[in-house]
Simulated scan of single mutants.
Amino acid sequence: MDADLEDMDEIEKLVAEDDDSEEMMQVCPVCGSPDLYYETGGVEGLYHCKYCDYIGSFIIDANEEMARMIRKEYDSEARNTA
């Protein structure tokens, strides 16, 4: 039982270290692009994506791997609908 607790402590340490080392960026929830700007000067709290024209208040804080996965999914869906 003690070995399991030690393993959990190690996992928690690795996760904490991994979270600290990852650089997070704000990306579009539709296409994963980091090319966002505030719509109407940020007064309304809306973001506009330059790549897919998404407009909304919801954005994702993602690391590079997560953004890449969102872009891959978006590109895959775009090819299937064309």
Rank of each mutant, 00 (worst) to 15 (best):
D20K: 13
D20T: 12
I60C: 08
E64G: 10
M25G: 01
A67K: 04
Y47V: 08
I59M: 11
E65H: 09
M24F: 13
E64Y: 10
M24D: 05
V43Y: 15
Y51Q: 14
Q26D: 07
L46C: 07
Y51W: 11
V30E: 09
S57E: 04
C28W: 09
A62E: 09
P29K: 00
C31L: 14
V30A: 12
Y38M: 06
C31Y: 11
V43S: 12
L46H: 10
C52F: 08
D18P: 06
D18W: 06
A16G: 06
T40E: 05
M66A: 03
V27C: 09
E39L: 08
G41L: 08
A62N: 04
Q26W: 07
L46R: 01
V43D: 15
S57Y: 08
H48K: 01
N63R: 15
C52S: 05
Y51I: 13
Y37V: 09
D20A: 14
E44G: 03
M24T: 10
C31P: 05
G42E: 08
A62Q: 02
D35M: 06
S33M: 05
N63S: 11
E23F: 15
I55Y: 10
V30R: 12
V43W: 14
S57N: 02
H48M: 07
D19Y: 01
S57R: 01
V43K: 08
H48F: 12
A67N: 10
L36Y: 01
D20E: 14
Y54S: 00
E23T: 12
E23H: 13
D35F: 08
E23K: 12
Y51G: 07
C31W: 10
Y47L: 12
D18A: 15
S21W: 12
M25D: 08
E39S: 00
D19P: 06
F58S: 04
I59S: 11
H48R: 02
E65L: 10
G32I: 05
M25N: 03
K50G: 09
A62R: 00
D61S: 13
L36F: 01
K50M: 13
